[in-house]
Amino acid sequence: MKIGFTLNGKNTFIDVDAARRVIDVLREDLEMTGTKEGCGTGECGACTILVNSESRLACLMVAAQLEGAEVTTIEGIERDGRLHPLQKAFVEHGAIQCGFCTPGMVMASIDLLSRNPEPTQAEIREGISGNLCRCTGYQKIVEAVAAAAAAKEKDGLP
């Protein structure tokens, strides 16, 4: 099936089995390996991407659902070589250890901050409740998201 969509702002055309999983389209066909696959069953959030600005799990989507969509992955959030405020905050707060969960955590946090620009600690925990991290113990991730929210407010960044 021929499918056209926007990937990180670029018009993208693929010709794949319509039921091919989006995680496989991204990682294997398009070689965008920033998005990770942990569980493949919706439970870990490692494959979180944005579709039309909302978080989605790429392991539970089929290629046909991409038609006409605007897709953003971790590769598409920096601007002119500058890290997204969330990426920066993750680095600065030691919120990354092995890094496997990080792309999903960042994408989930973008969804959260777009709905709720000033989340409480509890709301941040709820916002990333679909994302598992086996390294950091979450506290540093929560701090990073809080810092990014505060920084965004200061700088008026998107």
Binding site: A108, G130, N131
Partner: peptide, 9 residues
Amino acid sequence: LGSPPIRNM
């Protein structure tokens, strides 16, 4: 129910 992305989908 589920998690934010599960509720989005």
